[in-house]
């Protein structure tokens, strides 16, 4: 997907046991420029990611709406319990509607 957005970095195990909780860490390089400088709320052009969506086997399992208080290079850690092998899809979208997508597979034995 050509978007001008950076490639996200995702840390997720390649395999897990059935019923095990796995930790997923995501880091998306982005300035998260709110445009705010002191009392001036439009000091520089705004450039913000607005949403991250995580799907497991096509179903949304976690999503984040990101607002001004989210730090640059949005970083998220969350925990998923797997019963069977799963395909994960991660999508970040900015306020201009551009998006970037990444995928990962976790094999459950």
């Amino acid at each position: 997907m050509s978007s001008g957005l950076a490639q996200p970095r995702i840390r997720i195990p390649r395999s897990a046991r059935a019923g095990e909780a796995i930790e997923i860490r995501t880091l998306m390089e982005h300035p998260m420029e709110s445009g705010i400088r002191g009392a001036n709320h439009a000091a520089v052009p705004r450039n913000m990611l607005s949403r991250m969506v995580v799907r497991m086997n096509g179903e949304t399992i976690f999503a984040a709406d990101l607002r001004n208080g989210t730090a640059a290079n949005p970083y998220h850690v969350f925990f998923v319990r797997l019963q069977r092998s799963a395909e994960f899809e991660f999508v970040w979208t900015d306020e201009a509607g551009r998006s970037v997508r990444a995928t990962a597979r976790v094999a459950v034995s």
């Binding site: 909780a21 796995i22 709110s34 705010i36 002191g38 009392a39 709320h41 497991m56 179903e59 949304t60 399992i61 976690f62 999503a63 984040a64 709406d65 990101l66 607002r67 001004n68 208080g69 989210t70 730090a71 640059a72 290079n73 949005p74 970083y75 998220h76 850690v77 969350f78 925990f79 998923v80 319990r81």
Partner: peptide, 30 residues
């Protein structure tokens, strides 16, 4: 999440599901 003394209060909203192993999210805020 809300910041009470930032220029705007919104930080983030997380939407969870029962697929998550626990109701925990870690992030970084300003």
């Amino acid at each position: 999440l809300f910041a009470t003394r930032n220029p705007t209060p919104g930080v983030a909203s997380f939407h969870l599901s029962p697929a998550l192993a626990r109701a925990e999210v870690q992030t970084r805020i300003r």
